[in-house]
Design a protein around this nucleic acid. Structure first.
Lengths: 115, 115
DNA sequence: GGTATTGTTTGATGCGTATCGTACCAGTAT
DNA sequence: ATACTGGTACGATACGCATCAAACAATACC
């Protein structure tokens, strides 16, 4: 696979790194847990803290998945006291890959079925 | 990961299996070689035989990648004498995941840059 | 200070898979 | 039949990564 990542790491004053290349991005999204995180973030208008994700993995695993998403440019995180608020970089993603995120979100029918 | 695949295998008289679930599908597309195959197929109006893919892998590896794409419902193949013609299941993919394939194809700018 | 609370990091483990070479099989042509 | 061509199947190898537990770090609160 190889896909060498993490080119710039310009976390300086919150500047988010660029959205990853398509293969790297797809690899980040091709995991059930991470896709669930993406959908949770896309369905919420406010950022979500680590503890508020409804996911059946330990917190260390969750931290790992969030790192993968962050390094692929999918999410950004800002600290808020002892917690860390995660939000989707929807604008950047839509700009770079128009239609991609939308096509990964549950359809209205699926959303109803999941309720 | 797990994602148990291959539910029905109804290869009966050429009936293609359903397009895979989203995670399975993304996993099939999250590989540089397979994405290149997808783009080659999407950019051609006629099916492509195994030997006509411009990919730097051995034929056994290529066969493996085509199998992954086939089992994810991305492509279909029909035999033609001694060769096997591969084509993209664009209609089925667009029906199940509208906008997804389009968002993975090179933009006009990228297509020019690759020439 | 001491104690939760929230996340990250590290190491270990096990599974998946991309890759190759070789052998094999089905058509086609000689 | 023999040989060639296009593709698959198998075994081996190496690497990636999802997962967890435990240890650590940083902030808040008493």
């Amino acid at each position: 696979m190889t896909i060498t990542a993490a080119l710039d790491h310009s976390d300086v004053d919150g500047a988010a790194p660029p959205v990853a290349e398509i293969t790297h991005l797809l690899q980040a999204l091709a995991d059930p847990v991470r896709l669930e995180l993406l959908r949770a973030l896309a369905g919420s208008d406010h950022p979500i803290s680590c503890g508020n994700f409804q996911v059946q993995v330990t917190k260390s695993t969750l931290s790992h998945h969030l790192r993968v998403l962050r390094e692929a440019g999918v999410i950004e995180q800002r600290c808020d006291g002892t917690r860390k608020l995660t939000s989707l970089r929807r604008r950047d993603l839509d700009e770079r890959y128009p239609g991609l995120i939308q096509s990964l979100l549950p359809t209205p029918a699926e959303a109803v079925a999941a309720s």
